[in-house]
Amino acid sequence: MAERRRGAARSESARIAVLETTAALFAERGYDHLTIEGIAAEAGVAKQTIYRWWKSKSELVAECLFEGRLLPVDLVPPDSGDIRNDLTTWLDALFRFTDAPENGGLVRSLVIVAAENESVGRQLDASLGVSTLLTTRLGAATKAGDLPAGTPLKEVVDTLIGAVLVHVLQRTPAAPGAAKRLVSLLLP
C-alpha cells in the first residue's frame, strides 16, 4: 500500500509559480540572497507550502535546474569530426557565458548548492550530463582514431570541467586563446 503524504495536495499551478519565482530570484540575486520567505511572497504561496514540498532551499534550486529553468546555455559539445576544434569551440562558449557577471554568479551558486547537498551534487552531474556528453564525444574520437588509444577520458573530462569551474570561481575573464591552449595541453 502506498504511503500517503500528509498535508494538502500539491497544486501544479502553485508548484510552477514557486519554481518560476525561484529561478527568477536565483538569477537576479544568487543563491546566498535567495530565501524561502522571499520566494513564498513573490510566488503567492505560504512558506509552509514550500517546506512541505522541498526540504531545503538547495532542493528547490536543484529541482529548478533539473527542469531546465536555470541554465540558458547548451552544454552539448559540437561534433564536426575535429575533436580538438570541437572542444575549443565548446570551452570558448562556456568561458564567454561564464564571463557575464550574472552567469558567473549563477554557476557559483550552483557550486554552492552542490557542495551543500551531496545528493543534489550527484543529481546535478547526472541531469546536466556534461561528464557523460564529453566522455561519449571523446570516446567516439578515440574509436575514430582522432585520439590515441588509452587516452584517459575521465581525467580529460574532469580537467575540462574543473578548468571552467576554476575560471568561474576566480572571477576573471578568460584570456584570449585560453580554451585552445587548454585543449592543446590535454590533447596534444
Rank of each mutant, 00 (worst) to 15 (best):
M1L: 05
E3A: 06
E3Y: 12
E3D: 08
R5M: 04
G7Q: 05
G7H: 12
G7N: 11
A9N: 08
R10G: 01
S11F: 10
S13W: 14
A14N: 15
A14H: 15
I16W: 11
V18P: 14
L19K: 11
T22C: 10
T22M: 05
L25D: 02
A27N: 02
E28Y: 05
Y31Q: 01
L34M: 09
T35L: 02
T35F: 07
E37V: 06
I39N: 12
A41F: 09
G44D: 12
G44M: 09
G44W: 11
A46N: 13
K47L: 01
T49H: 12
I50W: 14
R52Y: 10
K55A: 10
K55V: 04
K57M: 05
L60E: 07
V61W: 10
C64M: 04
E67V: 06
R69N: 07
R69E: 09
L70I: 15
L70E: 13
L71K: 14
V73Y: 11
L75R: 14
L75N: 11
P77V: 08
P78T: 06
P78Y: 13
P78G: 08
R84K: 15
N85V: 04
D92L: 01
A93M: 10
A93K: 13
P101N: 04
E102D: 04
N103C: 03
N103K: 10
L106M: 12
V107R: 12
L110R: 00
L110M: 03
L110K: 00
I112K: 15
N117D: 13
N117F: 03
E118S: 02
V120C: 06
V120R: 00
L124F: 15
L124P: 05
D125Y: 08
S127F: 09
S127N: 12
G129C: 00
S131G: 13
L133R: 00
T135Y: 05
R137D: 04
G139Y: 01
K143Q: 10
K143I: 04
A144D: 13
G145Y: 10
G145F: 05
A149I: 04
P152E: 12
K154W: 09
E155D: 07
V156N: 07
D158M: 07
I161W: 06
G162Q: 03
A163Y: 03
L165T: 15
H167K: 03
V168A: 02
T172G: 02
G177A: 02
G177R: 06
A178S: 11
A178C: 03
R181I: 04
L182C: 03
L182W: 12
L185I: 10
